[in-house]
């Protein structure tokens, strides 16, 4: 991990009508780092991810990538190197696995290098290779999540954003996916992970932020938060 700031969000405010979903949340992601954001239902985690991706309008606040302001237009954000695995996976069910991966590579100009990326995502998730011609809608939940991650990786992002990748999956599949995310990070991709499954997220990430009703509650090294009494009580399902 380097000490260079890759992505920085400052004082982000997002409102949905009268509802304040984010009221001044800030976050930093270093190059090669894994950062997680944990928080309960409705804390504003998805809103934060969507704000980064240019999917919801920011009322106040700034986002920088490499120190330069990030575009607020969705497709430009993707082109500048952020790729989101959305909440609920949102794979394209009527398209084949292969077509899902192809559309993931939509922004790529270096078409000659795509073969490498296919090989890479297949090495992470071999099951996808066996099911290339299958319609994505017929995959199991775990396979759909793998596809959603592989699809995002086909864009060769600098930052991979994941919104609750463990949602609705069996523990064994969650462990498999998190193991592969570690490998993704080792290839030099920075990861921003949003999770309700705080334990898994803290075990994977280097640092973490705790979000509560749109505000920062706590931040620190993941290993310290794993031992934190309040966090244990509120998010890890253990009494302190």
């Amino acid at each position: 991990m380097s000490e260079k700031i890759l992505l920085e969000a400052q004082n982000i405010h997002v409102n949905y009508g009268a509802i304040q979903a984010l009221s001044g949340f800030s976050l930093k992601l270093m190059e090669n780092e894994i950062v997680s954001v944990i928080g309960a239902n409705g804390a504003g985690k998805s809103t934060f991810m969507n704000a980064l991706m240019g999917m919801v309008k920011i009322a106040k606040g700034d986002i920088f990538l490499d120190g330069y302001p990030l575009s607020s237009q969705n497709y430009k954000v993707v082109r500048s190197g952020l790729s989101l695995v959305p909440e609920g996976r949102r794979i394209f069910a009527p398209l084949t696995v292969e077509e899902n991966l192809k559309i993931g590579a939509f922004t790529r100009k270096d078409v000659s290098e795509l073969k490498e990326d296919y090989d890479w995502v297949f090495s992470l998730f071999p099951r996808l290779q066996e099911r290339l011609k299958q319609y994505a809608g017929t995959l199991s939940g775990g396979e759909q999540q793998m596809l959603a991650i592989a699809r995002a990786l086909m864009a060769r992002p600098r930052v991979l954003l994941l919104d609750e990748p463990s949602l609705g999956l069996a523990p064994i599949v969650i462990r498999e996916i998190f193991r592969e995310l570690k490998r993704v990070n080792e290839r030099g991709v920075s990861i921003l992970l949003v999770e309700q499954n705080a334990k898994q997220a803290l075990l994977l990430s280097h640092r973490a932020y705790v979000l509560q009703t749109g505000r920062l509650l706590k931040e620190g090294l993941s290993k310290d938060l794993l031992e934190d009494r309040d966090i244990k009580a509120a998010y890890l399902g253990q009494s302190a």
């Binding site: 991706m53 999917m55 993707v78």
Partner: peptide
């Protein structure tokens, strides 16, 4: 929406 997330304008 998800097509937009793929970088499609």
């Amino acid at each position: 929406r998800t097509a937009g997330l793929m970088g499609v304008n």
